[in-house]
Amino acid sequence: MSTTAPIGEDKIVAKVTSKHVPIYVMGKRYDVPDSLTIMKAMEYAGYKFIRGCGCRGGICGACGTVYKKPDDYKIHVGLACQTVVQEGMHLTQIPFYPATRTVFDYEQTPAVAEAVFKAYPELFRCVACNACTKICPMDVPVMDYVAAIKRGDFEKATELSFDCIQCGLCASRCMAEMAQYHIAQMVRRIYGGKIKPKATHLAVMVDNVKAGKFKDGLEQLKKADVATLKQLYMSKDAREIEPNMSEDEWVPTNNAYL
């Protein structure tokens, strides 16, 4: 085994020596190391994921999981790949929940609120119970974006629903039996494609690509050997990484390719 853990894996390597705690998967007890994520713990217990597992990085939305703790009545929620097990938790994965999804012709759909109202009239059955927001593993204010869609405010709905990973847990809890996340996706597509002004800098960059601005740099990378590539990738000096939570104005020191 290599002494250097590949970037990204250091966080999720199990400490095998850690304490074991009982968890209950669909009612059956397993004793698992307390440092594991739910997904790793289930694999530790012998489960093999064919569905309900995707990126393992908290982005794809395939591993939505609900659980209860021994001492409260609340429904807790998390992505199995991101949530560490807790002693005594009862859990089940809800990787998929049946949800109504209306097929629409993007080209033919006008950028008006009524297009969404027609595709999803059940939208108007929302009772503002807020169960959707409470269950969202991404802290998306689902009830608020549904309210924004009902009044035709696509900009607000896009902004509020932007972190949605389409896991579908909101739909599983909806009193009005709607699929909020599909409705929001339609709204984002219409807003992004037909309402929001086009990004001018993107067109500039595409022109740069076409004009061959990046050709030399890519050729150099293609010719490099593995050791050089590793050095370029791993070294802080060779690769400048945008810091977390950096301001919009942040630019790399080497801006040859901007």
Partner: peptide, 24 residues
């Protein structure tokens, strides 16, 4: 920040669910 009020009132004494929207 506001949500649809529900447009009509619940008239059943055991239906508080439909009161949530206007109260919020």
């Amino acid at each position: 920040r506001w949500n649809c009020c529900g447009a009509v009132t619940s008239l059943a004494q055991d239906d508080l669910l439909h009161m949530l929207a206007p109260v919020r």
